[in-house]
Amino acid sequence: MITESDIEHIAELADIGISKDEVPEFTTQFNAILDYFEVLDTVEGESAPDAGAVNVFRDDEPRPGLSQEEALANAGSTENGFIKAPRVM
């Protein structure tokens, strides 16, 4: 069973805001979905490394990237060539 406080914790881990009145609904839906996921408890077998290609590499050769203008073009706000982000202190 997932509780409402679990839902709030998950939202925080995911950096997803969730309003107080959404919490009960999300909780109910999560429990229904997780009930369905319980079928996975009956899965048998071990995980094994997947077959297929290995060692897919690129050579260490510089390639032109974006200009500063292109790099900043979609940013919400910039300052002296830097991209502005929320504060961390």
């Binding site: 939202a11 925080e12 950096d15 997803i16 805001g17 979609n74 940013a75 919400g76 706000s77 991209i83 502005k84 982000a85 929320p86 504060r87 961390v88 202190m89």
Partner: peptide, 19 residues
């Protein structure tokens, strides 16, 4: 909302702003 898309509010601390 930092590098693209509608801009994040950079006046908030990061978790709050992202959430």
């Amino acid at each position: 909302g930092v590098r693209y898309g509608p801009a994040v509010d950079t006046r908030k601390s990061w978790h709050e702003a992202y959430q």
